[in-house]
């Protein structure tokens, strides 16, 4: 437990609570179980929204949804960005030039604009949002991994291994990958934080297909419209989102050390 630190424990707790939402949540997140905009009480810990749904139950179920979309995005970013970044950094040459040019082109466009463009082409929906969030986080992650691989390949132990006849893929697998892993993991946690934020942003903007399904970004957007009368509707998902990002960034910092 000490290795993952406070932030790791916090992130683990948030993920666990979200995964166990169907067991913990006191109400069906889609059911009208209270008068609209009821204030927080013993019966409804985080109050009720405009439709009369229990905000606590929706935050729990929303966590599962937000995190699953973000984890899908994270997996795409790490797998694609990691593979391309390490290949570009290690092999260099034409492959590196092509990949770097492409990432430069993507980095020149604001990440949200990339995501919105993809959603305009592919339509709304959770999978589309996950892919859009992955694509928007990809260039930055790829560049970090490439830089790590590039600095590793010039290390003396790599030269030595090459001198004794270890092949390129052997070098990659046995030496480059293990030595770039801490940076990849740390950058990966930052990528996860961005994926959570981007996914929530896209839901906030209305790109999540079904507005009745609980999701933190969409709940924030709903809560904003009634913020002055019922601040709990926006505050609950807002705090949950902030805590998750806080924890993910804390873990990234710890991994970087």
């Amino acid at each position: 437990m000490r290795r993952i630190g406070f932030f790791g424990q916090l992130l683990g707790l948030l993920v666990l609570v979200s995964l166990c939402a169907p067991l913990i949540a006191p109400y069906d997140p889609l059911a009208e179980v209270s008068p609209p905009l009821a204030a927080p009480s013993g019966q409804h810990l985080f109050g009720a929204d405009l439709i009369g749904r229990d905000v606590f139950s929706r935050v729990l179920h929303g966590g599962a949804r937000t995190l699953s979309i973000a984890l899908t995005a994270f997996a795409c970013t790490v797998l694609i960005g990691g593979a391309l970044g390490i290949s570009a950094g290690f092999f260099g040459g034409v492959l590196d030039a092509v990949i770097v040019s492409l990432t430069d082109a993507l980095l020149a466009i604001p990440s949200l604009l990339i995501a919105l463009s993809l959603l305009t082409l592919a339509g709304s929906g959770s999978l589309q949002i996950a892919l859009a969030a992955a694509l928007s986080g990809l260039p930055a992650y790829l560049r970090v991994v490439r830089a790590a691989a590039r600095s590793t390949r010039t290390q003396p132990y790599i030269e030595a291994a090459r001198a004794v006849g270890v092949g390129s893929f052997g070098l990659l697998w046995r030496h480059v990958l293990p030595n770039t892993a801490p940076i990849c993991l740390s950058a990966g946690m930052v990528a996860l934080a961005w994926a959570i934020l981007n996914a929530a942003t896209l839901h906030f903007l209305g790109f999540g297909s079904d507005p009745s399904l609980p999701e933190w970004g969409a709940m924030l957007a709903e809560g904003r419209a009634v913020f002055r009368a019922a601040p709990w509707v926006a505050c609950a998902p807002g705090v949950a989102l902030t805590l998750t990002l806080f924890a993910a960034n804390g873990v990234a910092k710890r991994l970087a050390r």
Binding site: L50, I51, S209
Partner: peptide
Amino acid sequence: PQVAQRLQSQWRDQGIDAELRQ
């Protein structure tokens, strides 16, 4: 969106399922 969600909720009580596509 708010209206559609209330429709969805009302209809579900009466055995009509609604899929909202925003």
